[in-house]
Amino acid sequence: MHPSNTDPKLDIIFVPARTDTPIGSIVLLHGWGANHDDLGELVPYFNLPEYQFLFPNGLFDHEYSDDGKMWYSFTGAGQLTDLSRTQLATSREVLSEWIQSLPESTGIPLDRTWIAGFSQGGAMTLEIGLDLPVAGLIVMSGYLHPDRPKPQSVAPPVAIVHGTQDDVVPISAAHTSRDKLTAWGVEVQYQEFQMGHSIVPEVLDVIRTFVTK
């Protein structure tokens, strides 16, 4: 699908590298009810000056926030409805096609492109990234969709970071994601910290190491 005038379009914040020759791209996907400005504020703290950053906005307006966006809706119990699944399919298709077009628009190949996401953005990172030939995937306080099929080809390595005190996405979701990905043969780097549903400086250190190793 190629978005037309009636199709959803991605609103992107692009932050160029602080060097003349960037060596990689990092795509960051925000969580449910946030927007692309939310993670964009973290760029200086990643301390990755040779990398360019791209922050797409969720395709759908959040139900309970004037400024919030989402990749798909939840019910109160966090389950997917028919509408949720339709929205998820749309986000999956639009994000996947956009990421595959990045080498042409940025000059950075996919094998030097990382996809990262927080919370629902972490779920979308796994949803699309496991089937793309990117350098790696980073899941912060996220989860694997229960009906997400096994990748058809060799998946990129995955870093999972989660808080043991997370009361939004429980630590058990991280354990489930780790174990299922490992069973699929995916290379998984897993770390948990004494934190809630948040991003602490130690998480940024993990990301920096994962990208630059």
Rank of each mutant, 00 (worst) to 15 (best):
L54T: 13
Q100K: 14
A173M: 13
V15M: 03
L88A: 14
Q120N: 09
P22E: 08
P151G: 02
G121L: 04
R85S: 13
L88Y: 02
A159V: 01
G58D: 10
V158I: 10
I12Y: 06
H30S: 07
L204Q: 04
D37L: 12
L95K: 06
G122H: 09
I108R: 02
W184V: 07
V134T: 12
G68P: 01
D205R: 12
Q52R: 15
D20N: 15
G40T: 05
D167V: 07
D82E: 15
V206N: 01
L59N: 07
T19M: 05
A34S: 13
G58N: 13
Q100W: 03
T106I: 02
G196Y: 11
E93L: 08
T75P: 00
V186F: 11
P133A: 12
V94Y: 00
F46S: 06
R85C: 11
G24V: 02
Q152E: 15
D166T: 04
L10P: 07
V134R: 03
R85I: 04
Q165Y: 04
V27P: 06
L130N: 11
V15D: 09
S4G: 10
W114P: 03
V200D: 11
S177Y: 00
V211R: 04
V134C: 11
P170R: 01
G24R: 06
F46E: 01
H145D: 05
P156I: 08
V139S: 14
Q120H: 08
L80E: 15
H36L: 02
W114R: 02
T81F: 02
P103G: 11
V206E: 10
Q87W: 10
Q152P: 00
D166Q: 09
P133I: 12
W184F: 14
L28E: 00
F60Q: 04
K9C: 13
P109D: 06
G40E: 05
V154Y: 01
A89M: 15
G76D: 10
L80W: 00
N5G: 07
I128T: 12
F60Y: 14
G40Y: 01
G40D: 02
I12A: 04
W32D: 02
T21G: 01
D37H: 14
S65L: 07
V188N: 06
L29A: 05
L204R: 09
A155Q: 03
D166A: 03
H2M: 12
Q100V: 04
P44K: 01
V94T: 13
V161P: 01
T182E: 15
